[in-house]
Simulated scan of single mutants.
Amino acid sequence: MVLRRDLLRYVAARLALAPVMLWIIASLVFLLLRVAPGDPVDALLGLRATPAAREALRVQLGLNQPLAVQYVTYLRDLIGGHLGTSLASQEAVGQIIKASLPATIELGCMGLLLGAVLGLAVGFSGAAKPEGSVDLAGRLFGIGSYALPPFWAAMVLQLCFAVWLHWLPVGGRFPATLSPPEQPTGFYLINALLAGDGTALLASLRHLALPAFTLGLLLSGIFEKVLRLNLRRALRSDYVEAARSRGLREWRIIRRHALPNALLPVLTLGGITVASLIGGALLIEVTFSWPGVALRLQQAISQRDYPVVQGVVVVVAALVVAVTVAVDVVVAWIDPRVRF
């Protein structure tokens, strides 16, 4: 009962901090956009527009109001679930995000899965046989994959697998010659499975493979380092030495005693990595012309489209906060030491 009370107190504290974090992020993006150089009126009308046309558009967009009034209006609309209208296309920001978010989630989940599998496999191999050639190769792999510039890695993989070998498409989410499967989820892989369309499924996987592998390769070094360090620390702990003294096999000691404790930091890392996916996905989506929110965000920033930038950042921040809180709760439920 005491442990359950502690867990509920921890969960309540994390949930209470979530709205505060979102308010800080929303306020920062609002202020940074206003103080950044450039004017959305110039982006929409160009520098040759007449002063009267510029002023009329400024009044229409509400940019003539004081900054405090704009901020209060922005927060009121945000609380009410209204993300605004794009200055460039006059399309609702919510619809823009709804159309592009599934592509980013699909790419991010597949990249995170590939990165975790690849990194954990390399890290486990190195920790199980420390100070050997496998451990050295794993360390070099972790350092190299973590240090790779995303845009450079993406272009090299495009050159190898798309230009030279012609195995995979160079970019895009679906072939232009085919119609994507029409289902309400927005995820092409799930849509193809629901429709039983093997051609669409294969086409989606071929287009997803290269950007997802690139993103997974960049993330794998983090998982490799965390698992290797924690697993080696666990293998030197007292409870592992006690298990060895009882005559248990080394593989059983690793699997039953050391590995479960070493995986807890990896679980926490998975939640933190969701935030870093946004920065990596931006360069990956731009390089591969992947129609996700990161690519849409880059376009909105170049156009000084305030509502789209604000809406995308707030929605992505809400997803990151939700995933982080969920991971923290799971870790606290597994490991009672986190609650104190």
Rank of each mutant, 00 (worst) to 15 (best):
L3Y: 15
L7F: 05
L7W: 06
Y10A: 06
A12Q: 15
V20A: 06
W23H: 07
A36N: 06
P40S: 12
D42M: 13
L44I: 14
L44F: 07
V69Q: 02
L75Q: 01
T85Q: 11
S86P: 06
A88I: 14
V93H: 01
I96E: 10
A99L: 00
A103H: 04
L112Y: 13
V117P: 13
L120I: 02
S125Y: 05
E131I: 04
L136V: 01
L140N: 00
Y146P: 03
A147C: 08
P150N: 12
L168V: 12
G171N: 11
P175Q: 02
P180F: 07
P181S: 04
P184F: 02
L193C: 11
G196D: 12
G196L: 14
G196P: 15
H207A: 01
P211G: 00
A212T: 03
T214P: 11
S220R: 02
L227C: 13
N230H: 08
L235R: 04
E241S: 09
E241H: 14
R246F: 15
R246M: 08
G247I: 02
R256V: 15
G279C: 05
T287V: 07
A294H: 09
L297I: 00
R304K: 10
Y306P: 03
V314N: 01
V320H: 11
V321K: 11
A322P: 14
V323T: 06
V325P: 07
R337L: 08
